[in-house]
Design a binder for these strands. Structure first.
Lengths: 157, 157
DNA sequence: CCAGAATCATTGCATTTGCAACAAAATCGG
DNA sequence: CCGATTTTGTTGCAAATGCAATGATTCTGG
């Protein structure tokens, strides 16, 4: 009789719960054992695989705003894990890159995080895991598309 | 040649990005327009549909620890949206319930949040949406199962 | 029935975060 | 070429958060 949506069935709620639980599980590894915040870990992850990356791209790929990027990068720099430089092409931008020490730490942590993640994913039936992969990919596309539309309408307004 | 996992393909990363973007999109509605935090909104959501709920159950269903529950509930009480009482069965616990004002506010906000959420979900092909539903359900089960295991081993240790 | 262990909510304090203000640099219009 | 607007990074300050400590209540083993 209730016209109220059951929370358990409310999609955004379930997505948030699952993502948070998953994230917490991984944070136990890089956080508790290595003292990295989620933002720091994410930046390190992004930077470990490339030569350098601009602050702009960094923000776009993490959905972190510029303040979060700036502060996480500052902490990582203090720890000697990344280095910061002013971009030659556009001196407003910063060019971040991973130090050797940062890459070494990342190489040490990543396998442990992967193990932790696998522990959860392997508990799922293969078909469900494939469904999740597919659905998540589509969701990311959908989010990106509505964002783009929102930005465009804002421009014209 | 790189033995480094591409971040874009790393599952936990994509899950976190999608959930955060989705969450931010909904927060524009209940946050910017109604001044509720994510935790406050979630508690209100849980309480709007039932007579009362204990602090313990509240925490379990939201993956929030007791401090977060306590503080979000305190703020909601100050706003007159929920009421707090000591549970008769166990006087350590609290029994939270939604006030009429809280239910009214929830009824006002929910449709707007649903509209916002639908805007994203409707941008997905039907089959992908179904896959996401299925995968997400399985993921929640998997997370719960490994949590249970972890707790049990901790007890025996 | 009682003393110690366990569970739960709250509080204090240091750190972090978000938002707005600000400063530096680039782009655009004339 | 110069001033106004836009874009980007940083900083200040108030609010939020996490973690450890505390207090209140219940449970457990004798």
């Amino acid at each position: 009789m209730k016209d109220i949506v059951q929370l358990d069935g409310f999609f955004p709620y379930r997505l948030a719960i699952a993502a948070e639980a998953f994230s917490r599980s991984l944070m136990k590894v890089y956080g508790r054992r290595y003292g990295l915040s989620r933002e720091e870990w994410r930046l390190l992850f992004l930077l470990a695989g490339v030569d350098a990356m601009s602050s702009l791209e960094l923000g776009q790929r993490t959905t972190l705003d510029k303040v979060q990027v700036s502060r996480a990068a500052q902490r990582l720099e203090e720890k000697g894990l990344i280095s910061r430089a002013i971009a030659a092409s556009d001196r407003r931008l910063r060019l971040y890159s991973c130090t050797e020490q940062g890459k070494a730490l990342f190489a040490e942590i990543l396998p442990q995080v992967e193990t932790q993640a696998s522990g959860i994913l392997q508990a799922m039936p293969e078909t469900d895991r494939a469904a999740l992969e597919r659905g998540l990919a589509a969701l990311l596309v959908a989010i990106d598309s509505v964002h783009t539309i929102a930005d465009e309408t804002q421009h014209s307004a």
